[in-house]
Write a protein that binds this DNA or RNA. Structure first.
Lengths: 240, 240
DNA sequence: TGTACATCAGTGAACGCGCGTTCACTGATGTAC
DNA sequence: TGTACATCAGTGAACGCGCGTTCACTGATGTAC
């Protein structure tokens, strides 16, 4: 049975074509087979269906509490098929973290231009908000598991967020106002910016649509407040 | 069987005296019975044992994934005894949220004096750090379930944190630098301070002991950065 | 104080259910010639 | 192109287990007189 096969157990599931994936003309293009990767292609489709199914379940439950059988049921596949793709749920979880942090990494990169003028703050916040809207499932998963019940996932998320902060710390070092700031001072700023961005993202996920503008405006103000502080900061002098 | 009774299923459990709770002299103090509340007292002990057991399990797992039987096993009580105290796990969870937010409320109150001078920042951060250390289980639970898989808990936590922010927003309004700030501006500041405090708390919970000083110092710097921004903030002028 | 009855916190057996994992299997896809 | 064999993604039955909840119960605590 294919991921979208006729199992008929989960009531509403998006159907995808599981056969006839080759729509190009059948004229022999070359000597190699025209549809050579068919088996591995369909295996990959099932793998993606499992990941998508898990992500869907994770919008309502924490990783800790979803079962292998639930995931395969949602994916339209028998429980045993799972083991063709992952050793266990934990391995699937780590793949999800990687995928999701790809999203988060892009989001944080979009925040890089935050540290300049007021216009940029507003535009960057809008970019972050759009990104959040387009990657709700991944971001919700990250927010949920960042302090969730599965240690290995917490660790993986924590490590990646630290990398974002370090990256942003290097980046802000190029701004004129921050000449002469120590690495530590730049990390202080970077983590505050990242946390404020992440906080906006998770607030947007929790909120009703009509609350979004207020949340974005609040985040804009908070970033401006921080940036005003930056102009008065005396590197290394505040904590003597 | 009492919470600390001879069930003998969970291997290491702290034993508490379940009898002889009256240590005061037996001289008839009044006409009413000297140990009249014995039955309700021991019921309360079991209730507390269930809550404590749940909190202990929640240090390693999310609420979503712990079972009623696990909780009663940890509490040293039969599964059916649970229903003498709570309708279901969700009800127990809401009680835990209330208890834990009592802790968080005190913690945030300790942060109120943050908004003045550098000395106060350092002292307030230390107060928050001490508080975190003393209420690890409650704070971990809040951090985990704030964006966790159980909607009713998320809602309860979210609502209470919003109350903290509002409370702090009123409080900072009395500072000389904030005269003339609108309610919205004060809330912007208050939520930034609360989030920074909460973030420090959860970072401390995740970190090794030797990492704590660095986390506290970073938080001090972040709060100072924000407070520097406050002195340059022009109420209502930044978002025209 | 003593006795007879009521209350009720906690018990233990039983139930049907979904779980993770194993196993031998099926049949379409892929490959060698 | 055609045939014979190999590969392997996905299947379905089976297992033992822990789950939430029900039920009739026990016996210590509480109360009325």
């Amino acid at each position: 049975m294919s991921p979208s096969g006729s199992g008929g157990r989960s009531s509403t599931r998006s159907s995808r074509p599981s056969r006839s994936r080759r729509s190009s003309r059948s004229s022999s293009r070359s000597e190699s087979s025209e549809r050579a990767t068919s088996r591995s292609e369909s295996k990959e489709l099932t793998r993606q269906a499992l990941l998508r199914a898990a992500l869907k379940l994770l919008s309502r439950h924490s990783f800790d509490s979803i079962s292998l059988r639930e995931v395969t049921r949602e994916a339209g596949v028998s429980p045993t098929a799972f083991y063709r793709h992952f050793d266990d749920m934990e391995e699937l979880g780590l793949v999800l973290v990687e995928d999701a942090l790809g999203s988060l990494r892009q989001m944080i990169r979009a925040a890089r231009s935050v540290t300049d003028t007021q216009i940029n703050v507003r535009r960057s916040v809008q970019t972050l908000a759009d990104y959040t809207h387009d990657h709700q499932a991944h971001l919700r998963f990250i927010a949920r598991e960042r302090y969730g019940g599965v240690k290995v996932l917490r660790r993986a998320i924590r490590r990646e967020i630290q990398l974002f902060v370090d990256e942003l710390a290097v980046d802000v070092g190029q701004l004129p106002e921050l000449q002469g700031w120590s690495v530590d001072d730049r990390r202080v700023l970077a983590s505050l910016l990242v946390e404020t961005a992440v906080h906006m993202a998770v607030e947007l996920l929790e909120a009703r649509d009509d609350e979004h503008p207020a949340i974005q405006r609040r985040t804009e103000s908070q970033l401006l407040l921080v940036l005003l502080g930056v102009t008065r900061w005396q590197p290394g002098r505040h904590l003597d």
